[in-house]
């Protein structure tokens, strides 16, 4: 097919091809132009606008946005004690979720990476990934059904002779976050475990180390980046979420303060300023993770 067409004398198409071939900068521009422009305008541009908006403020009397430079929003974030409580609560639960998911995720990751036969490994990995594609709201909703008064969990506890209702609480929020982000934590840990070379384990064993010591001295240091990478997801996703708390929680998280500032108070400048809090926390977290080599583990 190709040779037939190539035999013909050079046409316009060939000339265009040749021209582009001689001008790689033009080709690069053609390829990168559209996606680059999209990201500059729609996304990075939007982030900059948000950043700028954070320095405006809402006039308390008229309820209108005053487009003048002011640090009023940042001052209230620092000064109002409720916001400090919200930030600490969110970061605390985010850390608890990350830790819980690492503990829960480790056996699965270890099984898939080192114990399972090839076929079973694929099946386990698909089983881990699939729930991520089940609708996010549906997954929260499922827990609402389970945890609410009169739900499955209360019934199970009653069968065991205990009276426990979780309902809407910080515990419920913690459980649901752990559930939602677990696959994100398992995958990088799995990837890190899978890359630990078998020869190192043999060497450790030859040198007389038993299982636990090999794990602590050889395996664990090698998978730290994977664990950190997993915790990034659990942490970052918890910091930005507002829906879980709305559905199964009571006390506000960072996300709820932002969401309510837009939806209820219509104070977009304050929402934008507060949105910089998770951004700042994540920047620090990502920087530390980067220094620990977590990006290489993904």
């Amino acid at each position: 097919m190709v040779s037939d067409e190539a035999d013909r004398p050079a046409g316009t198409r060939t000339r265009v091809s040749a021209f582009l071939f001689r001008h790689p900068r033009l080709r690069l521009g053609g390829l990168l132009g559209a996606p680059g422009l999209w990201f500059l305008v729609v996304y990075l541009g939007a982030l900059v606008v948000m950043y700028a908006t954070a320095f405006w403020h809402l006039d308390a009397f008229t309820g209108l946005v005053v487009k003048q430079f002011s640090l009023a929003n940042f001052k209230s974030i620092v000064d109002v004690p409720v916001y400090r409580t919200v930030i600490l609560r969110t970061a605390g639960i985010a850390a608890a979720v990350a830790l819980t998911d690492i503990v829960l995720g480790f056996p699965v990751a270890y099984y898939a990476a080192r114990l399972a036969p090839a076929r079973r490994r694929t099946a386990v990995l698909i089983a881990i990934v699939l729930p991520l594609w089940a609708n996010y709201l549906v997954r929260i909703f499922a827990w609402k059904l389970i945890l609410s008064p009169g739900g499955l969990l209360e019934w199970l506890f009653a069968k065991a002779g205990m009276h426990v209702t979780i309902g809407s609480s910080l515990v419920a929020v913690w459980i649901v976050f752990c559930y939602l982000w677990l696959p994100y934590v398992i995958l990088p840990i799995y990837a890190a475990l899978e890359r630990v070379p078998g020869s190192l384990l043999e060497a450790s064993s030859d040198l007389g180390a038993r299982g636990w010591r090999t794990f602590r001295k050889v395996v664990f240091p090698l998978i730290v980046p994977g664990i950190v990478a997993g915790s990034i997801f659990a942490f970052s996703l918890t910091l930005g979420d507002y829906i879980v708390v709305q559905l199964v929680g009571k006390s506000a998280f960072i996300g709820n303060v932002i969401y309510d500032s837009v939806g209820i108070a219509n104070d977009i400048p304050f929402a934008a300023a507060f949105a910089l809090v998770p951004l700042a926390i994540m920047s620090i977290y990502l920087f530390v993770a980067w220094r620990l080599g977590a990006f290489e583990a993904l």
């Binding site: 729609v42 930005g240 507002y242 949105a275």
Partner: peptide, 23 residues
């Protein structure tokens, strides 16, 4: 840069787009 919209908390993308469309 391309992965930022899903790596950063979704609410940031939401607020950023919301303020931009408004302004």
């Amino acid at each position: 840069v391309l992965v930022l919209p899903i790596a950063l908390p979704g609410i940031l993308t939401g607020i950023a787009l919301n303020t931009t469309f408004n302004n």
